[in-house]
Design a protein around this nucleic acid. Structure first.
Lengths: 96, 96
DNA sequence: TTGACAGGCAAGTCCGCACTTGCCTATTGT
DNA sequence: ACAATAGGCAAGTGCGGACTTGCCTGTCAA
């Protein structure tokens, strides 16, 4: 049901995950954990990150690919378009 | 502190409020209450809506103007730009 | 001036959600 | 085969946030 993109974005840790995937796409769970600690000081457990990824995937913001014992995570920003389409933002001065 | 646009958008009732203001800008609290019930079946109390408006205003998505015993609410979509700027979305086929 | 109307304040309840804990499954290398 | 690695599952906890309840303040019309 593209379950609530907005609620997926509500959590700051999940937004950092999107940032991280935006910086380097296709990371595994463990990669994300270590890099989130290093770059943003996020001290969440592996399970916590895993649950966040589930939420992001349910919202369609992250897609996954399995390969052996690795699972790679990819960012998909397409669902974000629905936001600006719902409440159109007039172009800012910088955009013109 | 432009306190968390994302959390402001996380609640569905608040999103309906933005829809309503997008449709008719400058409504009072009571106007919003009656129209939210009529159009979306939202049965929240006046106080609940008032609290939602506080959150939206704190997030910068709604501005207000006082006039006598009336308080008018206006939509401001500017904070939404930060979202698509944070995770740039490639233009969809429809946009081209 | 007094009643009706528009809105504000504050304490309390309740549920969802982020996070932990503990254990389990599957894949890979030696 | 077996240990290490990558990840999954499920129950429990604690806190924030949505909502209610009750009462108060300020404005306007008769």
């Amino acid at each position: 049901m593209v379950s609530d993109v907005f609620k997926a974005l509500a959590d700051e840790t999940r937004r950092y995950i999107l940032d991280e995937l935006s910086d380097r796409d296709g990371q595994t769970l463990f990669e994300l954990c270590t890099r989130l600690i290093g770059k943003y000081g996020i001290g969440s457990s592996r399970q916590a990150i895993s649950q966040h990824l589930d939420v992001l995937e349910a919202a369609g913001l992250v897609t996954t690919r399995r390969d052996g014992r690795y699972k790679f995570h990819y960012l998909d920003t397409a669902p974000l378009r629905a936001i600006t389409q719902r409440w159109p933002t007039p172009p800012s001065k910088e955009d013109r």
